[in-house]
Amino acid sequence: MLLPSFDYYRPQSLPEALSLLGEMGEDARPLAGGTDLLVNLKLKKLAPKVLLDLGGLEELKGNRADDGLVSLGALDTASRLASGGPEVPGLLAMGAGALGSPQVRNRATLGGNLVTARPAADICLPLLALGAKAVLAGPNGEREVALDGYFKGPGYTVKEAGEILTRVILDAPRPGVGGGYQKLGLRQAMEIALVNVAAHLELEDDGKTVALARVALGAVAPFPMLSPGAASALIGKPAQETCFSEAAEAAAAEARPIDDHRGSAAYRRDMVRTLTLRALRQALSQAQGNQEAQA
């Protein structure tokens, strides 16, 4: 399959990239891992005049931990996230590890996943559940945007054409915090989820009470969504089956699935319930494991 014609630039710094992007406006598309963008070009869904390869931008690379916060570079690949490390929350590693295939994970980036903003994106869901913020650099400097509110539609976010997503900021992994990730597809690999759920639980020091919870749902709305009902069913309650079931019900009720050739809305809604429950159990077990390990 042929790629359409385009010009290729590889800026060496963020200011250079932003200035090029400013000059070329909508004609240019930033290129990170290319696992989505190049496919869309080949399928003639997009025809930018210029590809701006972000691969040379040091500002978008490397992870930093500072004052309880972690900053992850937009060019972090799914493979590197999946292999974990001290800065990478377990939930994010799980989602990144469930993405595509090894070859795709070696190219696909954190930033690309957030910008492409597919409804079932394996990296977006954990980040949303983790309460992450995206850092968007533009001609007038940087702004931080919470991911809750960042997604607008399939492939459509609050990021403006002249902006580049440079980093993601989230809480550093700590004791009493756990995540669960559940993905339902036909195959065991190379799947876009029929439904996926990321659950994040933070326990009080008692190791039982839910201090904070977020449940993110995939493939059941035009973009990755949080279930506020699930969160409020959990927060302040003892982390156990009763409130997990309530949270799962709330998530199923709030999901907005549609019928398409991959699955019916009704099935997806039922699966939100099942996967939420499973993700919460997984999150609890991880949170308690963390706490014990620390103790």
């Binding site: 399959m1 290319g34 696992t35 190049l38 496919v39 390869d53 070859q103 795709v104 070696n106």
Partner: peptide, 25 residues
Amino acid sequence: VGDCGCCTVILDGETVNSCLVLAMQ
């Protein structure tokens, strides 16, 4: 389009689908 893996090569120690990497890269 990265679905089959036939074009896999190793780029700096990691496998990639070479159909989704630009030659320039």
